[in-house]
Design a protein around this nucleic acid. Sequence first.
DNA 1: ACGAGAACCTGTTTGC
DNA 2: TGCAAACAGGTTCTCG
Length: 286
Amino acid sequence: MPELPEVETVCRGLALRLQGRRLLRVDQRRPDLRFPLPENFAARLTGRRIERIARRAKFILVHLDDGTVLVCHLGMSGRMVLSDGLPEGGPEPHDHVIFHADDGTVLRFNDARRFGLMDLVPELRLATHPLLAGLGPEPLGNGFNGPVLAAALKGRATPIKAALLDQRVVAGLGNIYASESLFWAGLSPRRLARTVQGARAERLAAAIKRVLTEAIAAGGSSLRDYVQATGELGYFQHRWAVYDRAGQRCPTCDCADGPAARADGFGIRRIVQSGRATFYCARRQR
DNA sequence: ACGAGAACCTGTTTGC
DNA sequence: TGCAAACAGGTTCTCG
């Protein structure tokens, strides 16, 4: 589920309901997620007021009134589920942490695969925290553009698709939006990252901004049973140009009949790079 | 030093 | 229908 647009959507949903609220009780229902939770995790959160909720890359940052920040990552399967009180029948399987706010709002962190994480970090040390220190620029911020991207890709021998998944290059892209961005930039995912310079880097930076902006506007992509914190479904998955569309025709070049067409007559290919699925149109993307 | 692949863990989908 | 294999939005570690 969660790449930058989904995390941004979750943050906005959480902020609407929880900003300014005080945590009356926190139930920690297992000792660890991807890592052990910090010492006295629940106790350190109890009684705290939530000042604001922000995002850095795919991390949710819950700023508390004692100068600490609850850092959350959703991993692959993590969800933040808001409700008025606990659901009937109590917590659901894989509800690992449950936050009770002072107005009766309940937030459950549910994560079947447990690739997610939480940590408590002093605000002053946030920038140097090991999880956050090495992150590249925010793709929707002013610090990200063609030259910055080109510099990060310079000299790298890995395929551009793999480079875009490296959070040190640009922070927040994942497997879906990497494929989507390369499609709109007209760049082959197999192209060596170091060759994406100049105008190509400009195109790619612009495509990344465009794809992420449109996905956020659509409320992110909802896969399987994923819903936003507010309970609404994102709908960007209906606008994917290439992701999960192997065998379908390319949306812009109609290449089912073109020179890159496969024997089956369809345009969008699925390949595996670094163990992960990549989707692209070999005719449009060079 | 760098990049590909495995590993982490569980649930769902696919294929025989 | 049933079972096993493949696959899934992320990140980190190991190995070559």
